[in-house]
Simulated scan of single mutants.
Amino acid sequence: MKAVAIILAAGEARRMGHPKALIEHEGGRSFLQSLASTFGKAGCAVLGVVGKDSEAVREQHPNLMLVESTRWQDGLMSSIKAGLTAALEEGADLVLLHPVDMPAVRASTLKSLLKAMGDSDEGLRPEFEAAAGFPVLLSRVAAERLMESDTTQLDAALGAVKLRRVSVKDPGVVVNINTPETYERLFGTAPRLAPPPKRRVKKAATGAVTMPSSGMELGASLDE
C-alpha cells in the first residue's frame, strides 16, 4: 500500500512571526525538513501543502514535493483538500494528515500506526493520555469522503469519517509548537529560522570549485 503523508504548512503563523515550515527544529533542520525525514523513515511519501510564503518555503526545500493551496485563507480544510487531491492523483492508498507545527512525532510511532491501520477502509487517530493527536490516518475511501465535506473545520469534517482511536506513548502526537512561548520553553530561545539548505558543491571544467550561493532573506508568517 502506498502511504502519503500530507504536511499542512499553508497558513499565516501570525503569532510565531516566521513561517512555521521554515522555523528551526533540531540539528539545523526546519520543522518541515524534520517531519519529511521522520515520515520518510516510516516508509511514507511526503507531500507538503504551502500557501502563504510559498516561494520561500519552496526555496528552502528544493527536494520536497510541494503543492499550492490557492485558497489557504479560507481555512485549514482548503489546504487539506489541496493535499488530498494531489495525494490521490499520486495513487495513494492511505494518507496521513499532519500539521507542520507538530514536528516531534516519532518515526517508530508512525510505523506502529501504519501497522494498526492495516487494510481498513476507514481511518484512525492517535491519542496520548486520552488527548486526540496527529497524524490522522485515512484510507483512500475515507479520504474521498473527507473531500466531499462542505465544512471549513477539520473536526467537523472528520465527523463524517469513522476514526478508531489508538493510544500511543509518544507525546509528540499532541505537542503543538504554535506560539513563541511554547517554542522558547522547549528550545530555550525565541523562534528562529532554520539555516538555508546546503547546496552541493559543483566542480567547474577547470577543476576549480564553485561555492554554494549565500543565504537568502526570509520573512512573514504562516498560521493554520
Rank of each mutant, 00 (worst) to 15 (best):
I7C: 04
A9N: 03
R15D: 10
G17V: 01
P19D: 08
G27E: 09
G28W: 11
R29A: 11
R29W: 09
S30V: 02
F31Q: 04
G40R: 05
K41E: 15
G43S: 08
C44S: 14
C44G: 02
V46D: 01
G51W: 02
Q60L: 09
H61P: 00
H61V: 02
M65P: 08
L66H: 07
V67D: 00
Q73Y: 12
D74G: 11
L76K: 05
M77V: 01
D93T: 04
R106H: 11
S108W: 10
T109S: 10
L110A: 08
S112W: 07
K115P: 00
A116M: 07
M117A: 15
D119N: 10
S120D: 13
E122W: 05
L124G: 06
A130D: 08
F134T: 09
L137R: 05
S139W: 02
R140D: 01
V141M: 10
A142E: 02
E144D: 05
E144L: 11
T151V: 11
L163P: 13
V174Y: 00
V174G: 01
T179R: 01
R185L: 14
F187I: 08
L193D: 13
R199S: 08
G207Q: 10
A208T: 12
G219D: 15
A220E: 14
L222R: 12
